[in-house]
């Protein structure tokens, strides 16, 4: 099922408590520019052209200014989304780490782990490493599993603006398992 991330600059600005310089009347469709610009798995965005493209006379200074305004808005929203996404990943990881630790380790081990091994920066690095080690061919553009199944281990808050994909959740599970295994091996 295609996930639609419907964001406006105003919504992101409100969420972050920031003021945006971009007009709040303009709805920058982030999904639209992403969907139209980024190549898909069918390689449909590929066409032969007859010679080099160039800017024509129809593109006035006003049109260029408008394109710049759109780019500013998109970049601002992408940066905000990135920030929110990072926050959502780290919040979820930390919450799930507590669950994994209490499920897999004894009470004393849990205390030891959380007091001596709980390093937020290293958790995120572990998660990124796990994400890179996943087989991309098993996921679609939105991070959904192609086989139609879903990660039932990691629970997201449905009220959050950013929802983690199955791919991200799978990476999180792998990273958490690795951390617990490393701890057990190191004892």
């Amino acid at each position: 099922m295609q996930k639609e991330l419907d964001l406006t600059t105003a919504n992101i600005a409100r969420k972050n408590g920031e003021r945006s310089n971009v007009s709040r009347n303009v709805n920058y469709d982030i999904n639209r520019i992403k969907n139209k610009s980024i190549q898909d798995s069918h390689n449909s965005k590929r066409q032969k052209i007859n010679g080099e493209l160039y800017r024509g006379k129809k593109v006035t200074k006003m049109k260029l200014k408008k394109a710049v305004a759109v780019a500013v808005g998109v970049v601002a929203v992408m940066a905000s989304v990135k920030g929110l996404h990072h926050l959502e990943v780290t919040d979820t990881y930390n919450r799930e780490l507590n669950n994994f630790v209490s499920d897999e380790l004894s009470y004393s081990e849990s205390v030891d782990f959380l007091e001596n091994y709980d390093q937020p920066k290293e958790h995120y690095e572990k998660y990124i490493e796990a994400l890179e080690n996943l087989d991309d061919t098993e996921y679609n553009f939105f991070g959904d599993r192609k086989d139609g199944t879903h990660n039932e281990v990691i629970k997201s808050d449905p009220n959050n603006l950013i929802q983690l994909s199955d791919k991200e959740k799978d990476a999180m599970v792998n990273a958490l398992d690795d951390e617990i295994d490393e701890y057990k091996r190191g004892k």
Partner: peptide, 27 residues
């Protein structure tokens, strides 16, 4: 005017193509 698209113009064996970007990072 709000519909902005970014593509890559590449030369492949003397033929010119317009192709999509690799990922969000490239966008």
């Amino acid at each position: 005017d709000a519909d902005l698209v970014v593509r890559k113009e590449k030369l492949e064996k003397d033929e010119r193509f317009l192709v999509g970007l690799d990922d969000e990072e490239e966008l």
